[in-house]
Simulated scan of single mutants.
Amino acid sequence: MKKITDERLILQNLKNIRIAYFIQTIGILGILGYDLVTKGVEGMRENPLWLVFLITTVISAYLSMNISADHENNKISPQKSLRFSLVVLILISIAVGFFVSLTNGFTIINGVIMGVILFICGLIPIVYIYNLRIKRQDDE
């Protein structure tokens, strides 16, 4: 197969892939929505499409971060942005942990666990985008 060199054809190919991805996502959401209505939340989460949907959403988000890091301007240093993001993440994690511990049937330990899980899940993309910004800064 010959590699496409015409920029118009490359752009059209990317648009076709985007449309196919959109239709595939709508189909997956439709199937999961049907499972949600007929089997409930647990039935929907048991469907293997749920895992496919989560994985593709996370991968799409990380790929979008890569593009957005290249597109931003250099007005704010990566270190300052990292510190601000960490402060916001810590405040959100503490608030969620506190409110979870106040919920009936949950203890302080449940709130701490939920806050730590949220912190770790938020820390991964923050560090990833920080590394992308540092890499872009080094390239310039």
Rank of each mutant, 00 (worst) to 15 (best):
I10A: 11
V127R: 10
S101M: 05
G111W: 00
K39G: 07
F98G: 00
G30F: 11
L63Y: 14
P48V: 05
N131G: 07
I129N: 01
S77N: 07
K135V: 05
Y62V: 03
D139S: 10
G97D: 01
I4R: 11
F53D: 01
L9Y: 13
L29E: 10
T57K: 11
A69V: 00
L51I: 15
V88L: 14
G111D: 04
I23R: 08
E72R: 15
L29S: 15
I94Q: 02
G105F: 07
I26V: 15
I59W: 07
L86M: 13
T25L: 15
I126Q: 03
G43K: 00
A20T: 09
F119E: 01
T25H: 06
I129G: 02
F22V: 03
Y34A: 13
D35M: 08
I134V: 15
K2W: 12
I31A: 05
V100Q: 02
G27K: 01
V127H: 07
L49H: 04
T107K: 06
N73P: 02
N47H: 10
G97T: 01
G115E: 03
D70F: 09
Q24P: 06
G27S: 13
G122M: 04
R45W: 07
L123S: 05
K135H: 04
I4Y: 11
E72T: 03
I94M: 06
N47I: 03
F22I: 03
V41E: 12
I28Q: 00
G105W: 09
C121D: 12
I124Q: 12
L123F: 07
Y21E: 13
Y128D: 00
V52P: 01
R133T: 04
K135Y: 00
R136S: 05
S101W: 02
C121I: 14
I76Q: 12
V116N: 05
Y34E: 09
I109V: 14
N16I: 09
K75M: 11
L91F: 10
I92P: 03
K135R: 11
D70R: 14
K3D: 10
M44W: 04
L51Y: 13
G105V: 12
R83W: 08
I26N: 05
R83E: 09
Q24D: 12
N131E: 10
I23E: 09
S68Y: 15
T25R: 06
K75I: 13
V37D: 12
K80C: 08
I134E: 04
A61Q: 09
L36I: 03
L36S: 02
I26R: 05
S101Q: 00
D138P: 01
V127I: 14
L102D: 08
F84S: 11
K80H: 10
G105L: 04
I28E: 03
I76S: 10
M114G: 06
K75D: 13
D6N: 15
I55W: 08
L9V: 06
L51V: 13
I28C: 06
L54I: 04
R133P: 04
S64F: 13
K15V: 08
D35L: 05
K39Y: 11
K15D: 11
K2M: 11
N47R: 06
I31C: 03
I59F: 12
S77K: 08
I26W: 07
R45P: 02
I117G: 06
T25C: 06
L49E: 03
V127Y: 12
R8V: 11
I17Q: 12
S68W: 14
G40L: 06
S60C: 08
Y130V: 04
T103Q: 13
E72L: 10
D138C: 06
S101N: 01
T56H: 08
